[in-house]
Simulated assay, not measured.
Amino acid sequence: MNEFSLLTFVQTYGGGLALVGSLATMLLSTKFVTREAHASALGERDGRLKTQGEKIEALEDRVFRIESEIKHLPDKDTAHRMEMAISRLEGRLETMDERLKPVASMATRMQDFMMDQGARAA
Rank of each mutant, 00 (worst) to 15 (best):
E3R: 14
F4R: 11
S5P: 04
S5N: 15
L6T: 09
L6C: 13
L7I: 12
L7N: 13
F9W: 09
F9C: 07
F9Q: 05
V10R: 10
V10N: 12
T12N: 09
Y13P: 00
Y13C: 04
G14C: 00
G15V: 02
A18E: 00
A18D: 00
A18Y: 00
L19A: 14
L19P: 00
L19S: 13
V20T: 04
G21Q: 13
G21F: 04
S22V: 06
L23A: 03
A24R: 01
T25I: 13
L28Q: 02
S29M: 02
S29P: 00
K31P: 00
F32C: 06
T34C: 02
T34W: 06
R35F: 06
E36V: 01
H38P: 00
R45V: 04
R48W: 13
R48T: 05
R48M: 12
L49V: 02
K50S: 03
T51G: 12
G53C: 05
G53T: 03
K55Q: 10
I56K: 05
A58P: 00
A58E: 06
A58L: 06
A58I: 05
D61R: 13
R62A: 04
V63A: 01
V63T: 06
V63M: 03
I66V: 09
I66F: 08
E67H: 09
E67F: 11
S68N: 08
S68G: 03
E69Q: 11
K71R: 13
H72Y: 05
D77V: 05
T78Y: 07
E83K: 06
E83W: 02
M84D: 06
R88Q: 03
L89Q: 03
E90Q: 11
G91Q: 03
R92Y: 08
T95A: 11
T95S: 04
E98I: 07
E98K: 10
R99A: 05
L100A: 01
L100V: 01
K101Y: 06
K101G: 03
K101Q: 10
V103A: 10
V103N: 09
A104Y: 11
A104I: 11
S105Q: 08
M106H: 12
M106N: 12
A107D: 08
T108E: 08
R109F: 07
M110N: 14
Q111F: 12
F113T: 15
M114L: 15
M115T: 15
M115G: 14
D116W: 07
Q117S: 14
R120W: 03
